[in-house]
Design a binder for these strands. Structure first.
Lengths: 137, 137
DNA sequence: GTAATTCCTATTAAATCGATAGGATTAATA
DNA sequence: TATTAATCCTATCGATTTAATAGGAATTAC
């Protein structure tokens, strides 16, 4: 299941990308239009800022803005920050690899083989989708 | 993340498929060879039996056996029984559809669009993989 | 200096997951 | 028929994760 965090994060990024104006977008506005609990959204945007997708301006008339062109923001990057590993099992993860406790031989493991395929097909989607694709109608 | 339940279930099915003999395979044997807690595995095999993948024989010399040829057991079916919906969000699920509470218009939702693509690419893998593929070395 | 906003940390309630416990039922076989 | 060995069934538990809330500190526009 996709976490609410990721869902909200993607919606917020899309919202900001669609706004296009120079003035920063406020959390309150996003929360209202996308029906997201404001305090929860605050923490999500904070993560997105700390990982370099967003910039922020504090104080009155503050808010968030994109630090890169939407077409340069890949879903692989966003998903890894919000949702974590793209792979369904750590033993096939490219960025978060961990060996299985059980499983003496990965190459003989049927689950391993299957999950590599799933990982690759999902990666293929995320690698070929940018925030610009999401925010175009 | 893939649940342990699914992981163990897939390993168990593979183990049974590889055994090939006519005598039923016992939970204890699977648990031992695949390093799965036996009581947990019992409950998983029970689900797989109730959903028609496995048959069982009770009492001494009892155990589990496949009810279909491995090449006729699709990953789509197995995954739905063990892991639940293949889609990452209910609003793009073919078999477990639910409308989002928020999201007035699915077609305008960026998450929706993305998750349809992920669902389709994952489905493509599961539809083209059978237990026979998993159990072949 | 006041109002509005982001920033930060901690906490909580609920749900899910992985595993365990304890026996009831069934069947082979000595 | 008694014993043993296996599946079957229900309930429960502890740990983890998730989604959300709380409360204020820091910063900035005006």
């Amino acid at each position: 299941m996709l976490s609410k965090k990721t869902k909200y994060g993607l919606k917020a990024l899309t919202y900001i990308a669609r706004s296009e104006s120079d003035i920063p977008v406020q959390v309150g506005a996003i929360a209202k239009h996308e029906q997201i609990p404001q305090k929860f959204l605050e923490s999500i945007l904070l993560t997105l800022r700390k990982s370099g997708f967003l910039g922020s301006k504090k104080g009155k008339h503050g808010g968030y803005y994109l630090r890169k062109d939407p077409k340069d923001i890949l879903m692989t990057e966003v998903m890894r920050v919000l949702e974590g590993p793209i792979a369904m099992v750590p033993c096939v993860s490219l960025n978060f690899y961990e060996k299985c406790d059980d499983c003496p031989d990965e190459d003989a493991c049927s689950v391993h083989k299957l999950m590599i395929q799933v990982r690759d097909s999902t990666l293929n989607v995320f690698r070929n989708t940018t925030l610009a694709d999401l925010s175009s109608k």
